[in-house]
Design a binder for these strands. Structure first.
Ligand SMILES: [Zn+2]
Ligand SMILES: [Zn+2]
Ligand SMILES: [Zn+2]
Ligand SMILES: [Zn+2]
Lengths: 137, 137
DNA sequence: ACAATCCCTCTAGTAACTATAGAGTCAAGG
DNA sequence: CCTTGACTCTATAGTTACTAGAGGGATTGT
């Protein structure tokens, strides 16, 4: 079975442009072409596209995915590199979460400053933002 | 007191290019210029730059900051819009956190699949990524 | 006088797409 | 046979908030 790009995109749950983008970025091998120059994807292409989309749904950067694809093609090597790659990504996600948590705290504190319906010039939110000391020195 | 851009940037804890960028984006009014065409910032410029940097440290998008700056200049209006703006941002942060939490779960599950030192072609991480069903249909 | 350091404008690069523009391909209906 | 519509092609620019560089001018210190 061969699929044109629209079908491939639909099956992988992404847009046509995204599929072309992956090809351009070297994540998807160039497919064969029809007589009218349409891309024709095989089942294997499709599997690879799904692989990419699944990794992306885990928010892995394209470069990591590129590395995973390469590693996958050396089946007799130990999977330590793969684990390391996943671990690093988990670390990234963890530190993003820590950052967001701090952000949330700061924002909630800021928000709680407003004493309720009042005028802008006496709003503590505005005041706190305007008299920041952390960005002064 | 007047400051040149390097001094202003240092005081606000950002790079020179960032200050110029804010000016270009209309977040900072154009400062006066010296004879040699150097930007000369006043204390007020500096305060506004700090305001922007502080909002940015809360990860507010520049457009929100632009709105805040506008709202701040209408001191006799009610601060409801300001509150709404902050609330929306808090919502964004909350949903980002929820997303990241899910991501973290998925990644930890994925990571735990690997049975330890083994070969790539029998690694469950690779298998799980390759046989994704969520991106198939 | 000269070097180091600052500053200027303009342009391009980052990540991962998304969205056009302008053209070609293909199947079905009248 | 012709046309309409859906699909595809390439190439280019836009998104966000900066960052980095080229190629030049200004200022400062010795
Ligand atoms: Zn208020
Ligand atoms: Zn601050
Ligand atoms: Zn393994
Ligand atoms: Zn999947």
């Amino acid at each position: 079975m061969q699929f044109r790009i629209g079908e491939a995109a639909k099956r992988a749950g992404c847009k046509v442009e995204t599929v072309r983008y992956y090809e351009q970025m070297g994540l998807l091998p160039q497919p064969s072409r029809s007589e009218g120059n349409y891309r024709l994807y095989s089942e294997e292409h499709l599997a690879q596209l799904r692989f990419i989309r699944h990794c992306r749904s885990l928010d892995m950067p394209l470069e990591d995915i590129r590395n995973l694809l390469t590693l996958r093609e050396r089946p007799r090597e130990h999977c330590a590199e793969i684990n390391a790659l996943v671990d690093e990504h988990i670390d990234r996600v963890n530190s993003q979460m820590a950052l967001l948590e701090q952000l949330r705290e700061s924002l909630l504190t800021l928000r709680s400053q407003c004493a309720g319906p009042g005028y802008t010039d006496s709003c503590e939110i505005v005041r706190e933002l305007s008299t920041c000391e952390c960005h002064d020195s």
